[in-house]
Amino acid sequence: MALRDRVKKLKLLIMDIDGVLTDGKLYYTEHGETIKVFNVLDGIGIKLLQKMGITLAVISGRDSAPLITRLKELGVEEIYTGSYKKLEIYEKIKEKYSLKDEEIGFIGDDVVDIEVMKKVGFPVAVRNAVEEVRKVAVYITQRNGGEGALREVAELIHFLKND
């Protein structure tokens, strides 16, 4: 199926966090607190997708208060953190919104994302994703995770949906 056809069906976009919305690095303070860095470009990308009527969700194995705060600031509708059972969560979200696999996209970077990426209609890998993830993707971003990759995907979706 052509990329344009996949994108035109898109109603929900799910993202991993570490390595997709962040650079995948973990920064620790001297007190042992984790710091995550988010790119403003990705925040604008989220707003663009929401304006197009695309529901957004995140599924992340890691759980962190700053992460949840940032996602809530951006109005992300579905936030699932602290679980590596991504396929199980994916099925729950799909059922909640009564969607078909081909109406859902997923942006990932590591092997824990592959199960879900194989199910969705629009699997995306960030440029610095591991090779196994890149092989499953129908689109690989020009930007690395945490460096505006989501914004790039949002602009692609906007362009193809309005073409």
Rank of each mutant, 00 (worst) to 15 (best):
I14Q: 02
L3E: 11
A149E: 02
D101V: 12
G145S: 10
A154P: 00
I68W: 05
E77Q: 14
N39D: 15
E103Y: 04
K8M: 05
S83P: 09
E91I: 06
I59P: 01
G45D: 08
D101R: 10
V40K: 12
Y27H: 13
G45K: 09
I44W: 15
L71I: 01
G61M: 09
P123T: 08
V124A: 06
V7E: 03
E102C: 11
I114C: 04
L160C: 00
G19N: 08
K25R: 15
K36P: 03
G24R: 11
K85D: 14
G145Q: 10
T55C: 10
K119R: 15
N39K: 02
K161Y: 10
M117E: 05
R4C: 07
E155T: 07
K86G: 07
E73Y: 12
K86E: 10
R151D: 11
V58G: 06
K11W: 04
K9M: 11
I104H: 02
L49S: 01
E30P: 05
I14L: 10
M15D: 02
G61H: 12
L49K: 04
I46C: 13
L49A: 00
G145F: 06
H31P: 01
E91P: 08
D18Q: 02
G61N: 12
K85M: 10
E152D: 06
L48I: 15
K135W: 12
I104C: 00
E132K: 15
G121S: 06
N162I: 03
A125Y: 01
I35T: 12
P123K: 05
I14Y: 02
A125V: 01
K86N: 02
E91G: 04
D63K: 15
Q142T: 15
K119P: 03
K9Y: 10
D5Y: 11
A129W: 09
V136H: 03
I79Q: 04
K36Y: 05
T81V: 15
H31I: 02
L49F: 00
V112F: 11
E147Q: 10
G45E: 07
S60N: 11
T29W: 08
R151Q: 11
I35F: 08
V120S: 01
G75A: 03
D42W: 04
N144Y: 13
A65S: 13
T29A: 07
E103I: 00
V133H: 07
S83F: 03
R70S: 08
E88G: 05
D113A: 06
G108W: 10
T34C: 11
G43W: 03
K119W: 01
